[in-house]
């Protein structure tokens, strides 16, 4: 990834995201407080409010000091920050290195990943990063330290997109390494066998992870806007070439892509996996905001 004036914390992006809170819809451990209520009891406990006792409440949670003061039974409520462990899985295969107009899918994905990492760390959750192609390029386990973001960004910047994709296998590998339940965020163009990808994602779900998939598309991949007879060469498999007249196949191509998306969406829904298609033409803040709003 080229350095320079690339800024993953574009104020426009961050302004859009900082007004929203990342909320887990599903907390594996059940521990939740504040916005992110969790069934699991967290390490950091902060008093939030009192409420009157009602039958069925645990007696040990009665605030005896308040009884002495107000002569009424109050239950003490605490707000705990969820100890969310987010794994950001960034696809760094060669197919991500495509841009029809301006930004490549990889750049876009990196920005998105960095934004998410920032957001997660800002909320004092733990964020980790895995970059992969047909193998795991880098693995940064989740930490909740604010300065951990530098390490994540460093890993993202460390290499560009190269190599073939093998998302399914990679997901299975990572699933084996994730010991504690958490949030799995996959940022990829998913150019692999759909069944293999879904198998990998299911692995996470079996282990109780919450999974979000950002399916990246370049606008040209969605619309095939080319003219004339063209020799298409695959970005990953050098020997995969095809001559086609985009005008002749455009309608069918769009159908095929849409079917792929629809199939992925359905499979994800069936497995309670969040699935979001994002075009690189979509403004990043808009993509994040719309997702987080929906998520909320």
């Amino acid at each position: 990834m080229p350095n320079g004036d690339k800024n993953y914390f574009d104020p426009k992006v961050l302004a859009g995201i900082s007004n929203l809170a990342l909320r887990a819809r599903w907390v594996v451990e059940g521990l939740m407080s504040g916005i992110h209520r969790s069934r699991a009891k967290g390490f950091s406990v902060e008093f939030e409010e009192h409420r009157e006792y009602s039958p069925g409440d645990e007696i040990r949670r009665i605030d005896w000091k308040a009884l002495g003061k107000f002569d009424r039974y109050f239950i003490k409520e605490y707000e705990d920050e969820t100890n969310l462990r987010a794994y950001l899985l960034m696809d760094a295969s060669a197919s991500m290195n495509y841009a029809s107009d301006g930004i490549t899918k990889f750049d876009y994905g990196c920005t998105l990943t960095a934004s998410l990492a920032y957001l997660i760390l800002k909320q004092q959750d733990a964020a980790g990063l895995v970059t992969f192609s047909d193998h795991i390029e880098s693995f940064i386990p989740p930490r909740a330290k604010r300065d951990y973001l530098t390490q994540i960004l460093g890993a993202l910047e460390k290499r560009g997109a190269a190599g073939e994709t093998n998302v399914g296998k990679i997901l299975e590998d990572i699933a084996g390494q994730v010991k504690r339940r958490g949030l799995i965020v996959l940022v990829s163009d998913l150019l692999d066998e759909p069944e293999s990808i879904l198998n990998g994602l299911r692995q996470f779900r079996f282990r109780g992870n919450d999974v979000i998939v950002f399916h990246l598309f370049d606008q040209a991949e969605l619309e095939l806007p080319f003219d004339g007879n063209i020799l298409f060469e695959d970005l990953e498999a050098a020997n995969l070439q095809v001559i086609a007249d985009p005008r002749a196949i455009r309608t069918t191509y769009k159908q095929v892509v849409q079917e792929f998306i629809n199939d992925m969406r359905k499979q994800c829904r069936d497995n309670t996996i969040d699935y979001q298609v994002i075009s690189t033409a979509t403004p990043l803040d808009q993509a994040l905001a719309s997702y987080l709003s929906w998520r909320g």
Binding site: Y98, L191, G228, F232, E233, D234, A244, I249, Y253
Partner: peptide
């Protein structure tokens, strides 16, 4: 037919699939 343009493209598999279908 003679004037072929070359484009490196990630979603060749979809093109192949489209061609096969139509």
């Amino acid at each position: 037919r003679r004037k072929l343009k070359r484009i490196r493209f990630p979603a060749v598999r979809f093109i192949l699939l489209s061609q096969k279908r139509i």
